[in-house]
Nucleic acid binder design. Sequence first.
RNA 1: GCCGGUGUGGCGGAAUUGGUAGACGCACGGGACUCAAAAUCCCGCGACCGCAAGGUUGUGUCAGUUCGACUCUGACCACCGGCACCA
Length: 876
Amino acid sequence: MSDQPHTIPEYDPQAVEAEARRWWTDHESFRAREDPAREKFYCLSMFPYPSGRLHMGHVRNYTIGDVIARHQRMLGRNVLQPMGWDAFGLPAENAAMARGVAPAAWTWDNIAYMRRQLQSLGFGIDWSRELATCQPQYYRWNQWLFLRLLEKGLVYQTTGTVNWDPLDQTVLANEQVIDGRGWRTGALVEKREIPMYYMRITAYADELLEALDTLTEWPERVRLMQANWIGRSEGVEIAFPYDATAREATGADGLLKVFTTRADTLLGATYCAVAAEHPLATAAARSDAKLAAFVDECKRGSVMEADVATAEKRGMPTGLYVLHPLTGARLPVWVANYVLMGYGEGAVMAVPAHDERDFEFATKYGLPIRCVIRSTTGAYTDTIAPWAAAYAEHGITVNSGAFDGLGFQAAVDAIAGALEAKSLGRKRVQFRLRDWGISRQRYWGTPIPIIHCASCGAVPVPEDQLPVVLPEDCVPDGSGNPLRKREDFLRCTCPKCGKPGRRETDTMDTFVDSSWYFLRFACADNGQAMVDERVRYWLPVDQYIGGIEHAILHLLYSRFWTRVMRDLGLVSLDEPFARLLTQGMVLNGIYFRKTETGRIAYFNPTEVEEREDGAGGTRAFLVTDGEPVESGGMGTMSKSKNNGVDPQVLVDTLGADTARLFTMFTAPPEQTLEWSDEGVQGAARFLKRTWKAVHGHVAGGGATGPLATDLNDGQKTLRRQVHQTLAKVSDDIGRRRTFNTAIAAVMELLNAVNRFEVATAGDRAVVQEALELLVLMLSPIVPHICHRLWNVLGHPGAIIDVSWPQPDPDALVAETREIVVQVNGKVRGRVTVATNAAEAEVRAAALADGNVQRFVGGQPVRKVIVVPGKLVNVVV
RNA sequence: GCCGGUGUGGCGGAAUUGGUAGACGCACGGGACUCAAAAUCCCGCGACCGCAAGGUUGUGUCAGUUCGACUCUGACCACCGGCACCA
């Protein structure tokens, strides 16, 4: 370097970032235009709910998307990266109740603030396509499609179970039920059956399941979770005829239908169990007060599956009997709280010997246990009694009369055949997936376009009367849907008969809004149609990025909705998201104290200091009073735990690039990310070092000439590392999406450049190339500082318009290679051999190594394994 | 309870196809610069034994496959996400 004194300007992130953003804005750099001549790349991050301020999860999500989008742009693709707002939802109503403001005003304020935040982070978003789902020009198409599906029978009405708060007289969301009580009133929650609209997603169950195989660029775990959620199982539907008791109670000659995947165990059925909501339970409860009380009890409490599944198994006999379809034996019918009305037929046949839940239940209530399966090995047979546990594996049938001695599939086939002959059963496929209930008894959502008429019933709103506009000035008070009090909204005329009607006040699930917003970004300005031909150019989304918590519902509904639109001829694609990245959560430390009243008070990590406790560990203290606080480990950032970090503070102090670098470097994108103030400082330090390296190089001496054709060894070594790093970073960003390792490689490169001694013009040329490529590699991740440094390195244009570089194959060539030598799998030495050395040569060099010989110690060599270019293992 | 995931130094993490465990960063220790501090730069840093060379051990636990296992198989433990009205 020059020995002349020179000054390096201080790195001022605010100035550098403002300048870069101004350039992008002035040049409309991120405005995406359809161009059939260019290959497109649609990069989409899950749009945020406008909750008020961005949180670290948003910063992480959108930085990942922006890095990919900017990299693809440099690779020459026509990139679309849009942004919008998932603007309907419960938090707006809660905020309204807490502050007395209308949800619309609150939502729009939040959107304005969060849009500025996103802009300050330098994301390359095409804001001309921005949309919010609470705008009538958006949600009118929810209504329009709802009506199309109603015509096609893909939307239907039936009753559904909801959480009911008896004091507030209102429906509660699952998250508003805390320990079985309403969150505001504390009243015990009841279940209530109300009419609701459903979308027939089960009609697409098979296709949604099978097409998972085509999603090769989705994480395996997401595909697995979806497959299990859809839950296709092949089994037999079996009808148990009512006996006289059941006929009398129901007044009909009925059949109790059950579905089972274990028809091979049918001869071991000793009772049947039905859900509390099942017609047989209802019938039996009419004449049995005790049973009625039990049924009522089962109907109380939470509707959540997790609660139902973990509850203690309880039941009561109905006093009714059904007949075994093959033997004619009378089997008692029980009501059991572990049978779900929503799955299958709401009734099960119980085989205690071969099902764990049935076993537990039968043991508890003294019901008979009958073994009809023995294991193929004979380790479990019907003579082992009393049984300590159910034998739920597949095996060989016993005690099954004509069906004895059969394996699983043969037994199922034979028994299904026998049932079919008697018209008491048939093979069929059952899905775990249920139809999608979209009705919500809430205000801040898309109005369901239905008019209720005293004479015509539920009448669809005619298409030319859409949208049904939601009044924006309601202030909910927590007791029921405020729309029910809005006469101006309710009053209307029946489209069929012209008499006065009343509007439906239920609104749509917000998952409806998010099931197609990715299509609308292609044509957000179209006021005449839901979608247009531009969808054909941009879709499918090439890369979708969002939280793992959306792995099932949002993604499944979107896949369903896309197919529905396809079948209506609106789009021509099956799958909306070609490639998916599910990012992990952002965690931070949790600190708390238990107060005397037993309440827990949480402290933000910024108020807490970790000090050494003298015993090798650390202990946390509150800064304000110096007293200890308890440490609760790491948890997701949340208001309730008071452990959130406001990204804005970080952006305002250290800059957007530091925020971006930290979130990309600290963990791979799919894993959880632990917040660390020290880690943030580390990221800032690296940017400063990069800044200094570039400025130091430029200040070090005049113009830089071209690379010499005959480089010396030191120059070759640095150049090899530069191009190796470029190859790795290209792969890490482009294919593996492991931004953390890409950054680590660039850090190593910067260390190597800083160590490299510059003496000659040839050295300068090598460093110039290294720094240019280094800045290019970093530019998708920290675009602002790279925008400036590119100019500092002597380039007049903007780095955003530079193509992603290719590694120089000549630079990658090395003459020698270090090979690890193991003896019996343990590293005992290293030898350097020519890159093109033959196997025998490598082997000889390995065996000649001093330390290797010491460990071989004259013992006979049994085997030598040579892994080309990597290692040699000598087995003695 | 069911489905899915994760577990590696003091900490975050790396090891891409079964082939050098701990890259890179943080924290910490030592040194340089400074009147001093901060910043910056240099060196060290899994544990145990050893002056060193080097050795032993080590990837949640236990067992297995293999010349070789963080990686594959089985059982178990702990934590995290989802479970259909949070988004």
